[in-house]
Structures are given as structure tokens and as C-alpha cells.
């Protein structure tokens, strides 16, 4: 009896979780112009339409640029800070750790609003770079926390051995510490990429002429339901899922997280 109830709950829960995804993907193959029942596909014409739209492909390129660029910066800064805080004790380091994590507890809207106020006050223009700066702010705490958490005595001993053998601090970092932390660094990088790739509100507030994909989708939403939106949505979902699966089956599997 309890097994049946468990199964039933599992099925209902998965039905609820996947309902919007299935509807989104299914009606992206709709033949007619409205993505609602009855389904009259399958047709690939909306994918054709969307991938041939330069606004959409430009936005897609911008999104990838911002995602990869901001993640690289976030991971480098996060790694260096984690190394500094894990290997050296200095006054105020607990406070600094707290400060680096702090942006996690603030909603994206507030991060974006603060930056927008400063940028407009200083008379600086909005662009993909300003959106990228915002994305580093939200991804740096995660990158730092992930890398910091996987630093331990194992690498420290190897570092000490390398130093005894005459390696400079830079060589220690590049040839000893970083290679040993590849799983954590990769996890931090891919997580940053997925979060930045999907991020809307900061990009919306901090871009103007060149916009990212979520912002482009937002502006298309104004004209209501359309199979074109389903097609873009399915592509975006596919890319996010691909990144998550890569992460799951390569990096995290080895760490037995």
C-alpha cells in the first residue's frame, strides 16, 4: 500500500515538474501559428524561422560571450581569493570571507539596481560589459565558495613539497594547486556559465543596444504566445541541460558529491 502511494506521488510530482517543459517543447513543433492544443505538427519551421533571425542569433552570441567571459573572471578571482584565504592567515580574514559570500544573500534585482544607479550617476553607458560585471558579482561568491570548500591538506602538502624544491609562488599555484583543484574549478565555471546564461534581470537593467538572449525573449513575449518562443525556449533549455549533464557526468561524478 505504501509502495503504491509512493509511486503515485512520484508520478504526480514528475508530471507537475515536467508539464510545462513538455508543453513548451511539444508545441515548438506546431505547424500553425498558435502554440496551443490541438497539436498539428510536427514541423521544424519555427526552428528555421528562429535560427534565421539575426536578432535571435546575435542575442545568443552575446549571451554566450557574457556567460563565458564573466565566468572566467569569476573563477579566476574566486580561485585566487580561496588560495589566499586558505593558505594564509591574516587579520580580518573571517570578515573578508563573509564579505565575499555576501552578494549571495541579496536578490539579483538589488545587485542590478545598485549598479544601474552608480553607472547612470557616473554617466557611463550600458553595454554587454556592464551586464558581465554584474554577472561576476553574483557568480564570484559561488565560485569562491566551491573552490574554497575543496581546498585541503592534500594540496597544501604538495605545495610545500614544491616550495621546498625551489618553486616560486606563481609556479606553485599554476603547476600544483590549480591542477589538483580542476574538478572544483570546472564545477564553479560550469555553474557560473549556466547561471549567467539564464540570467535576466541584471542583463535587462544593465544592457541597452546589444542584449542577451533572455532579454530578447522578454521583448518577444510582448507579442503574446508564439511557436517561435517555444522554439527558442527549447533551444535554451537544451543548452542548459547539456551543460548540467556535462557537469554531472564528468566533474561531479569523480568527486562523489
Amino acid at each position: 500500500m505504501r509502495t503504491i502511494l509512493s509511486r503515485l506521488y512520484l508520478i504526480l510530482a514528475f508530471g507537475f515538474i515536467y508539464l510545462p517543459v513538455v508543453v513548451l517543447v511539444l508545441y515548438s513543433f506546431q505547424e500553425s501559428g498558435l502554440p496551443v492544443p490541438p497539436f498539428d505538427g510536427p514541423s521544424l519551421k519555427w526552428y528555421d524561422d528562429v535560427l534565421g533571425d539575426s536578432d535571435v542569433t546575435d542575442a545568443l552570441t552575446h549571451s554566450l560571450l557574457v556567460a563565458v567571459g564573466s565566468s572566467v573572471v569569476a573563477v579566476i578571482l574566486g580561485f585566487l581569493a580561496a588560495y589566499g584565504l586558505a593558505r594564509y592567515t591574516f587579520s580580518g580574514s573571517p570578515f573578508i570571507r563573509l564579505l565575499l559570500i555576501a552578494p549571495l544573500t541579496v536578490s539579483y534585482l538589488i545587485v542590478g539596481l545598485g549598479l544601474l544607479i552608480v553607472l547612470t550617476r557616473l554617466g557611463l553607458g550600458l553595454s554587454l560589459v556592464t551586464a558581465g560585471i554584474g554577472h561576476v558579482v553574483i557568480n564570484l561568491p559561488l565560485a569562491f565558495a566551491i573552490i574554497f570548500a575543496s581546498m585541503n591538506a592534500k594540496q597544501e602538502n604538495a605545495e610545500r613539497a614544491a616550495r621546498d624544491l625551489g618553486a616560486t609562488e606563481m609556479r606553485v599555484i599554476f603547476f600544483v594547486t590549480a591542477p589538483m583543484l580542476v574538478p572544483a574549478i570546472a564545477a564553479a565555471f560550469f555553474l557560473s556559465v549556466t547561471l549567467s546564461w539564464d540570467e535576466f534581470i541584471i542583463s535587462f537593467l544593465l544592457t541597452r543596444f546589444d542584449i542577451t538572449l533572455p532579454v530578447e525573449i522578454w521583448s518577444m513575449l510582448r507579442s503574446g504566445l508564439s511557436p517561435r518562443l517555444n522554439a527558442i525556449g527549447s533551444v535554451v533549455f537544451l543548452i542548459s541541460v547539456a551543460v548540467v549533464l556535462i557537469l554531472e557526468f564528468t566533474v561531479l561524478r569523480k568527486r562523489h558529491l
Binding site: V21, L24, G233, V236, F237, S240, V241, V244
Partner: peptide, 11 residues
């Protein structure tokens, strides 16, 4: 992991 704009649109 779906973008939240897309997820809301799907609903």
C-alpha cells in the same frame, strides 16, 4: 535549469 523567463512562459 530552464531560464526563468522561459519557465514562466511555459506556464
Amino acid at each position: 535549469w530552464t531560464s526563468y523567463v522561459i519557465r514562466s512562459y511555459a506556464w
